[in-house]
Every structure is written in structure tokens, then in C-alpha cells.
Amino acid sequence: MRSIMTGQRLVAIAIALFSVGYLVIAFRIPDFALEVSMQPATFPKVLGLSMLVLSGLLFLQRPTAAEPTSEPGRRDAIVMLISMVFYIALLVPLGFALTTAVYLFAMAFYLGYRRHWVNAAVAIGIAAGLHATLAYALGITLPSGPLPL
């Protein structure tokens, strides 16, 4: 035990703060105009309090071993997250097929796939194939963007 403020205790405090925020919102849910057996705020209040109690229990508990995380992988996870933000943001303006092909190629490249022609063929093939399958077989129209699909 390194210090009193273990990771688990920090998590417990974060959950407690979340519970307090949740309770504040729960207490501001208006009561229903009619006489009802259980107000819309009743259950949320119970939940918020339960969460607060549970966070207290967690704080008092002996920390259990968390999954070890390696430093080098952190950058990859962040890149993954940012790439997904771009993917989602561009999905509608650029269309599903184009965004997906670029995303698949770029991420495979970043993650170390080095057979570029194969990569490009797979990315384009999968993007086009999925778009076509969904559009023609399932009748689900994905955003097409500037491409004439």
C-alpha cells in the first residue's frame, strides 16, 4: 500500500461525486401533477443514495488488484479514440463508404500493417461491400456523402 489515496479510493471519491450530482438532478425532477403511488423522482433518489453508500463501502475496502496497464500502449489507445472521433464526425458529411475506407486503411497502417496494397484493397473492398450489402440487401441507406452511390 503506497499511500492512503490508492487508485481505488480516488475512484470511490469520483463515484461519490457522481452520486451527489445525480441526486441533485433527481431532487429537481418535478412531482407529477396527479396523485401517484411513486413519483418519477422516487426511484432515482433511491438509486443516487444507494450509489453514495456503495461508493463509501468501496472507499473503505482494501483495494483489489487492478488490471496492470502498460505505458507504451497508452498512446495507441488515445490515437484509437481520436480516430473514432474523426470517423464519427465525418461519417455523414463524407459518407459511409469513403470515411470507412479511409478509416480502415489509416488505422491498419498506424497499427503496423505494412502490406499497403493489401490494406488498401481490403479497406475499399470492405467499405464498398458493406455499403452495398446494407443498401441493396437490407434496404438500410447509409449516408452517401459526395460519392455518387
Partner: peptide, 20 residues
């Protein structure tokens, strides 16, 4: 499939599933 390809592909599947 190489992990480098599989992981982005899972993301794409999830995105399609949710969008649909």
C-alpha cells in the same frame, strides 16, 4: 485477421450496427 485490421473493423461493425 491481423490485429491491425481486425480492431478497426470491429469499430466499423459497431458503428454500422448503432447507426442502423
Amino acid at each position: 485477421m491481423p490485429k491491425a485490421m481486425l480492431l478497426p473493423l470491429i469499430v466499423v461493425f459497431c458503428v454500422i450496427g448503432v447507426y442502423a
